[in-house]
């Protein structure tokens, strides 16, 4: 049982880090529904780098860089070209799915490195996620830069009028966010489940995206939600720990996805929707064009 909890935190780290990245860019007004694609690309390239070089450090660096670059690409479409952000996100996801399926295939199988170190069995990256959540909260709500980042997500023309470059802020957000999401992808493919296979990410990027919608853009609620989903996921893998002999193991695997939908519905109370509407970055998903 305590094992179940600890490994749940390892899973939670992946959800949390990726969702924190998405939170950051959503706060600056950029919606990337293609988290799954960013995580697949950075997770796969990180995996290949680590497997061929034998170094975790190299794997993580490649993943961070990949994430930042993919974030930049999504940013270029969404900020400079100003096209529909949902379509752009879809494109990033399909690009990630398609490319990694082909490029990763020859590397199918385990990573083949020593398992990533833990702190007396405790997953390191859960601590990283906690630190990131706190730092992100501090950055967004306690610093001048954070104020600028948030202002371009709320009312870009007012921000621009008060001397904030919307373009610069949004690019900063997408690159940082991309790197964070990329880290999340690498934590999955290098630490949590270091085995590459077809579509190995199993929709985790979409669950992380869902987390951001649940969280009311609060970094700490993201971590809490991530723990819940991490636990749910582990339980679906080892249901016999709590519910022996109920359903086949395949039906259990379907559970986290169905429960995500149920949570969505339960949360969709009038109260939550009002709060959600009030907290939502006003300009989320809206392209901004500077008056030239």
């Amino acid at each position: 049982m305590s094992n179940l909890l600890i490994i749940s935190l390892a899973a939670a780290a992946v959800f949390a880090i990726a969702a924190l990245g998405e939170l950051l860019e959503q706060r600056a007004g950029i919606l990337n529904v293609g988290l799954e694609g960013v995580m697949l690309l950075s997770g796969t390239f990180g995996f290949i780098a680590a497997k061929t070089s034998g170094s975790y450090l190299e794997g993580f660096l490649v993943a961070l860089l990949t994430g930042a670059l993919v974030g930049l690409l999504h940013g270029f479409f969404s900020i400079t070209l100003g096209s529909n952000q949902v379509v752009n996100g879809m494109a990033i996801w399909i690009l990630g799915f398609g490319l990694t399926t082909y490029i990763g295939y020859p590397y199918t199988g385990p990573l083949g490195l020593q398992p990533f170190p833990t702190i007396a069995g405790f997953p390191v990256f859960f601590l990283v996620a906690l630190v990131l959540a706190a730092s992100l909260w501090f950055l967004l709500y306690k610093t001048h830069l954070g104020l600028k980042l948030r202002s371009v997500g709320e009312n870009p023309s007012v921000a621009e009028a008060s001397g904030v470059s919307v373009t610069a802020m949004r690019y900063l957000a997408v690159v940082l966010a991309g790197a964070l999401v990329g880290l999340g992808g690498a934590v999955y493919s290098l630490v949590y489940n270091p085995v590459w296979s077809y579509n190995y990410l199993q929709g985790w990027g979409f669950i992380a995206l869902a987390l951001v919608f649940f969280s009311l853009w609060n970094p700490f609620l993201i971590v809490a939600g991530a723990v819940f989903f991490g636990f749910l996921w582990q339980l679906s893998l080892y249901p016999e720990l709590l519910f022996p002999n109920v359903f086949s193991r395949y039906i259990w695997r379907a559970m986290p996805f169905l429960i995500t939908i149920v949570v969505f519905v339960i949360l969709s109370t009038r109260w939550f929707r009002l709060r959600w509407g009030a907290t939502k970055p006003e300009a989320l998903g809206v392209p901004y064009q500077r008056e030239s």
Binding site: L95, G98, T101
Partner: peptide, 11 residues
């Protein structure tokens, strides 16, 4: 390798 059609899809 498997998945050249998916690579095409992504691109």
């Amino acid at each position: 390798a498997f998945g050249i059609d998916y690579a095409l899809l992504g691109v």
